[in-house]
Amino acid sequence: MLSCKEVTHLVSESLDRKLSISERFRMQLHFRICAYCRNFRRQMTFLRQACRRLAEGKAPFDSDQG
């Protein structure tokens, strides 16, 4: 069984490379029993979403919206 720490590495790497079938399987297995790692996975997706928003120039971080 993967540890939470190992899962955090795999979740991060899944954003940068294609994981092997075995890695994905073991990660899914872990998610089934670990709500914290599921939260972690959603947090990583959120970070990517935030950066994309920034990249598109759609982050509302100033007063002169346009």
Binding site: K5, E6, C37
Partner: peptide, 28 residues
């Protein structure tokens, strides 16, 4: 055992709502 200790990842709720908040971007 390499499992989460006391500071566990929480549920961050609705991403849309957060991303539309100017103050969130200051924190970011």
């Amino acid at each position: 055992r390499d499992h989460w200790g006391d500071d566990r990842p929480s549920d961050w709720g609705d991403p849309e709502r957060t991303l539309e908040n100017k103050r969130f971007w200051e924190t970011f």
